[in-house]
């Protein structure tokens, strides 16, 4: 099994900066932005996006995490999953523009679960989706608004995202 690197530290940084700019550009009106990362690596990415946005337009955004474990549609089909913490920023999500952040967009089922989980916390004005890698093979009618890299892949291949906060190194790789 050989892993082929796709993105390095600098590429990931560049992709996130571009996404941050796109998010700010697409933000219509004065709505608050709330970045909610899906644990584990989405949470780290949400934090990074938030700090980039802070440098460009201080005070427009908040960041948190949204655990989706309890809302998954495969709970009864796989091993028991332990839930991770959900941290909604103090301002809540009502009437805010929520940007869901995840590392890899694949079947779309995690995002579906996230949309359900989000409804337990309030009613955002709009929900957007930002991902570092879109590898295709959607099983649900879901698409990302902001994508770091489109990565055509075979279903048999595996995409690895490693981030400094979790794995000690920044890297995206694909292996067959």
């Amino acid at each position: 099994m050989s892993a082929r690197p796709v993105l390095q530290t600098a590429d990931i940084g560049r992709a996130l900066r571009r996404i941050a700019h796109e998010i700010l550009e697409a933000r219509r009106g004065d709505g608050r932005l709330v970045f909610l990362g899906i644990p584990t690596r989405g949470a780290a990415l949400a934090k990074r996006l938030h700090s980039i946005v802070e440098q460009i337009e201080p005070g427009v955004a908040e960041a948190g995490t949204l655990d989706v474990t309890m809302h998954r549609d495969d709970l009864g089909r796989s091993a028991t999953r332990a839930p991770a913490p959900t941290r909604i920023p103090s301002g809540g999500i009502d009437d805010a523009v929520v940007v869901l952040v995840d590392d890899v967009l694949f079947s779309g089922r995690t995002v579906r679960a996230a949309l359900d989980a989000l409804a337990d916390h309030g009613r955002p004005r709009a929900v957007r989706l930002a991902v570092l890698v879109d590898r295709g093979h959607r099983e649900l009618p879901i698409r990302a608004d902001f994508v770091g890299k489109n990565l055509p892949s075979a279903t048999s291949e595996r995409v690895f995202v490693r981030l400094t906060e979790v794995d000690g190194v920044d890297e995206v790789a694909i292996s067959s």
Binding site: L75, G76, R77, S78, A79, T80, R81, A82
Partner: peptide
């Protein structure tokens, strides 16, 4: 109750 493996999370 939730998983297929009885709590081995």
């Amino acid at each position: 109750v939730s998983g297929t493996d009885g709590g081995r999370a």
